[in-house]
Write a protein that binds this DNA or RNA. Sequence first.
DNA 1: CTGTTAGCGCGTTCAG
DNA 2: CTGAACGCGCTAACAG
Lengths: 323, 323
Amino acid sequence: MSIDKVARVAGVSTATVSRVLNGNPGVKPLTREKVLAAIATCDYQPNLLARQLRTSRSNMLLVLVSSILNPFCAGVVRGIEEEAEKNGYHILLCNSESRLNRESAYLRLLSGKVVDGVITMDAISCLPGLTALIGDSPWVQCGEGDPGYNASSVTIDNGLAAKAAVDYLVEQGYQRIAMINGDVRYLYASQREAGYREACEGRWQQVVYTESLEYQAGFQAMEQLLALPDKPDAVFAISDSLAGGALACAHQRGLKVPEQLAIVGFDGIPFGEITTPPLTTIAQPIHQLGVRSVQLLLERIDNPAMTPVYEMLPWSLVQRGSA
Amino acid sequence: MSIDKVARVAGVSTATVSRVLNGNPGVKPLTREKVLAAIATCDYQPNLLARQLRTSRSNMLLVLVSSILNPFCAGVVRGIEEEAEKNGYHILLCNSESRLNRESAYLRLLSGKVVDGVITMDAISCLPGLTALIGDSPWVQCGEGDPGYNASSVTIDNGLAAKAAVDYLVEQGYQRIAMINGDVRYLYASQREAGYREACEGRWQQVVYTESLEYQAGFQAMEQLLALPDKPDAVFAISDSLAGGALACAHQRGLKVPEQLAIVGFDGIPFGEITTPPLTTIAQPIHQLGVRSVQLLLERIDNPAMTPVYEMLPWSLVQRGSA
DNA sequence: CTGTTAGCGCGTTCAG
DNA sequence: CTGAACGCGCTAACAG
């Protein structure tokens, strides 16, 4: 069931079978027919590993994600997969959950030639050991961009977007605007905090940090804020899921949203449309972030000498009921 | 930067380098040192493709999922990844979105020896072309089990669980219990519907079908139900996300939950804990479904002649505020 | 304990 | 237009 057998059955050489397999021109139609027939009768399936070894191209992309349970990440992955498929690539997904040894195990596939390049959606730039594993392999950062590396990036302007969200709350007349932030080792987190600080300059400020981006974390963060002597009347959360948790907490406390407490989220995931009230949020171009990441990565794979591109995609403030 | 160079630098043969690389016993400590030193100075990274070709083992598992945006699927994938990592395996994720050509492109990696086995969480048994692509490769069905194939499966007893959910609604005194179902080509969907029908025998019955499992679909389904001349006073939804959409619709209509409308979901995803009121639901052992799937798959990989195992894991009715 | 040899299955020169 | 021969980088069998 290898190419030799097909060749024997067809009465040709392996080279000819290979040519037919790869749509190589310059095979007499009659010969091609014979080969195709042999392939069919043998039920031949090419060994992709051998092909990859020979061509030193795997047509596989590694995608490193902090948590696949995060709908924002999942949405980006969908975009990645779509564009990858268009170009004949497959996806190897590493759901790191910030586990260092898991991440390095996957990154080793880069030097091992199992994947042609990597897209990271994790705070990888904080982990020097990992960037060393990537070395000069084709690399695109998605969702946050640290220009300190030989990697392209696809993001939005996190600082500006955060500032716009908080400015909006200010315009609506809210006085004490708090922020629920995540892990500030992520560049996007610190950039959004900077945007918040800028918009709140000379005003009341309060930031709470969570360990994860899951609903429960947002709920707990909101509890902390409501336990303050000076309670906020508005909250800017760094993700819609955190905002959703905060909203649940407000409901439980009997707070009217947005009258007594306004909430603005970030990301623009579908979940935000069905909360009561629906979430006002900063919508990221989720799908497009994935698509562009793949496009830039493939460019880099085809031309390893290419200089990194730092791309910022447009975002928008989506005004719904929560603020 | 291949094994030959390391061998030359260390002054040994490639075989010895290989032995050191694979922790093979029977290498003189001194020689081992020399080899390790050479590996370090060369900054040598083994070519995994070559190794995989040689050993005809890739240590990769294909995971076929209908939608990664579904938190249930994402949770299972997490379990899969954890158990895979424990055993030195990596995951190749195909987010099929029911796209036939995407699924077949990934399944071809099976015959292409790029992956050692596959776990499917999709209604693959409805698609004869795909099962043919799998052939006799190691295969585990997760979340639904069609015994008509040479594949193990890990599921819960969907019929019984659905019946328990509806029985609970009956016990609470609800009279007109409707069901929001998804795509019945999925075995689990038809099994849960059977459970619903059984519990509702001799009573009012009404089933609405959705195209997807996303919130919006649940919202729309609920709208359909509320447009009925004879409205339901309770709803059993096939997934928590659909239930969440239904809940949002109820809120928008000003219906009190659970007094005027009770809602029971299915899956037990974290989202259900933060809705108002929180969702009563059937909790599946999400993580464990993934873990066991990998375990059964690895057994099958090690012993291809193994007869399929059909495993059912325990579930539970989690009583919260929505019913 | 170590080296030599022989493939794994394929794509790709280079002749003819 | 086709075939013979080589090698991608590695592991495994067999000698020594």
